[in-house]
Simulated scan of single mutants.
Amino acid sequence: MSVTLNAHQVGRMLDRTADHIADEYTPVLHGIRIEADATFLYAVATDQSTLAIARYRHHGLDGAPIARTLPARALPALRRWLTDQPGSDPVTLTLADSKIRFTAPHGEMTLTVDDDQKYIGWRGLVRDIIEQTAAGTECACPALTTQMFGRFAAADERLRVWTNPGRQPVLLAGEDFLGAQMPVRSRHEGFDTGLADDLDHVRNLWDDSPTDADGLTPAPMPTGSRPLHDASRTPTDTVEALLHQTMRSTHDLIEESSDSPKAVAAHAAAGVMAWTAYRYLDALHRADPKLAAQIIAEVDDELDSGEIGEFAYDAATAAGLDPQKWQDDLEAETTPSVPDTSATER
């Protein structure tokens, strides 16, 4: 089973979807799904909040349709290899024995893949989204240039969007913020010859692929959650995590047996600290949302490093405190005492 595109097209497909890959806590989505039918090669990625699908018309499919997930850990090396190939050179993807081999005139690269790994039913999902969008649309949707999206990144954590017909500006509103973006001209005015004009056009373009390219039943969208120790990178997610932890600790405190004083103390401390952190974060976010987001990202990096004990020691020293005494006291509490047997021996 093999399919061929040029190197530029394969690299472009990875670039257009890589930012939408889920993290390692959702294994089925931690990579880019490659699927080939009789007409197109697709690249699909989703993190459950966003979905990206890129496709190119291939040069020919040899054998049965292809459907495998390229693991996220292998993608940087694959992208570098593709960059080293002339963009117009053909790259053939060949599937065999839990491997995908990328073959070009000037090199070859092989990735290990899981032949049994399913993926979400993205085709049905896309069809549902298109139909739902069409049902609630009363006007033509404007075309927006993505180069301007980044200008609103600092506006607010979330923005609500309203679209207007024709060449009217798109309205964006946040907390104490308003924005607008002018649409670009449509293909009828000479530009964007590959850009769909309306939802009927979108439906026609994307409704010509088989329901299930690999012949298997697609997996449902996973619902797994992150580990309790994993930090959030946005104020909204952090607030949710802190309030959840406060309620969880309060519940566990009530349920915990009185025979476990250390466990009771741990639940109480966790609840108090989570609530305190929430109150501080709420105040900081009201005063300076941008600073709150920056601090949350820094804390996430610090927790990922696994060195918060050292960070706390340095911070205490900088504050003029005596962290060495705290450490000595903790060691004394956890070191079992040795009974004095000298009198008995004598």
Rank of each mutant, 00 (worst) to 15 (best):
P183F: 06
Y25N: 12
Q324P: 03
T39P: 00
E307S: 10
P218E: 07
L228G: 07
D37P: 03
D322M: 05
D212I: 02
V272F: 11
G87Q: 09
A283R: 13
I308S: 08
D314P: 00
D322A: 12
A153R: 13
I34A: 05
E333Q: 12
P336I: 04
I100A: 05
A241T: 08
Q245P: 00
T246W: 05
I308Y: 06
Q294N: 13
P71W: 05
A316M: 14
D212S: 14
R127V: 06
E138A: 06
S88A: 15
G224H: 08
D15M: 09
T317L: 15
Q181W: 04
Q324A: 15
K290R: 12
F177S: 02
C139A: 14
D192R: 14
G309A: 14
L78P: 00
D300G: 05
I100S: 00
P339T: 04
T211W: 01
N204Y: 10
V3C: 11
Y42R: 13
P165Q: 07
L172N: 03
R226W: 03
D97E: 11
K262H: 13
D62R: 09
A72I: 02
G107F: 03
R248W: 12
I53F: 04
V10C: 10
M221A: 10
R158T: 13
L243G: 04
H244K: 11
A268S: 12
T83S: 13
R73C: 00
M273Y: 09
G31C: 05
D62P: 00
D237H: 07
A293E: 09
D208L: 10
A270W: 05
T238H: 04
S342Q: 09
A22N: 02
L284Y: 03
T69F: 00
T193L: 10
A283K: 13
D97I: 01
L172V: 06
M1H: 06
A143Q: 07
A316W: 01
I66P: 03
L82R: 04
W122M: 09
R79Q: 15
T250Q: 15
W162V: 07
L41V: 13
A154H: 09
R80Q: 14
A77P: 00
M221I: 15
Q9H: 11
D237E: 15
L172D: 04
G124P: 04
D214H: 03
H267M: 10
D230E: 12
Q168A: 14
A38M: 08
A297H: 02
E189T: 03
Q117N: 04
P27A: 06
P323K: 03
T193K: 12
A315N: 09
I295E: 05
D237F: 02
D128M: 11
R286E: 13
L51S: 08
Q181N: 09
A343L: 10
R101H: 03
G124A: 14
A213Q: 04
R346S: 14
R123I: 05
A22F: 02
H106M: 06
D84S: 14
L61G: 05
K99Y: 00
P71D: 02
V272C: 10
A277W: 01
P90L: 06
T133L: 14
D214R: 00
A196I: 06
D230F: 07
A213S: 04
C139Y: 08
G136V: 11
G309I: 06
I53C: 05
S49N: 10
T4P: 01
T236W: 01
T344C: 04
A343Y: 07
H188W: 06
Q85F: 07
W275R: 13
R12E: 15
A263H: 12
K290A: 15
